[in-house]
């Protein structure tokens, strides 16, 4: 009996609060603008990070490979 009641309760539709990140809820609002800027910033960061560290390592390794053998061993 208890199981049936539990199933019945689970099946009853409950009105819930919509997701606050919903596009319709935020479109045109100041908070939506803030979210957009934050998303763009976080989207840009991994590229900037991997680009700068990877680029730095690549150019360092290329410069290092051009050094004479003895100088390379000491550097």
């Amino acid at each position: 009996m208890a199981f049936r009641i539990a199933v019945l309760l689970l099946l009853i539709p409950i009105a819930v609060q919509a997701c606050p990140l919903c596009v319709d809820a935020l479109e045109g609002s100041e908070l939506g603008r803030g979210f957009n800027m934050s998303i763009l910033f976080l989207l840009f960061m991994p590229f900037a990070l991997v680009g700068s560290i990877g680029g730095g390592l690549f150019f360092y390794a290329r410069r290092h490979s051009r050094l004479p053998q003895k100088q390379r061993a000491n550097s």
């Binding site: 609002s29 100041e30 908070l31 939506g32 603008r33 803030g34 979210f35 800027m37 934050s38 998303i39 910033f41 976080l42 960061m45 991994p46 990070l49």
Partner: peptide, 16 residues
């Protein structure tokens, strides 16, 4: 990236 996350949260409130 840790600070980027914190700055991202700050941007939401600052520009929002």
């Amino acid at each position: 990236m840790f600070f980027a996350g914190l700055i991202g949260a700050f941007i939401v409130f600052r520009f929002g």
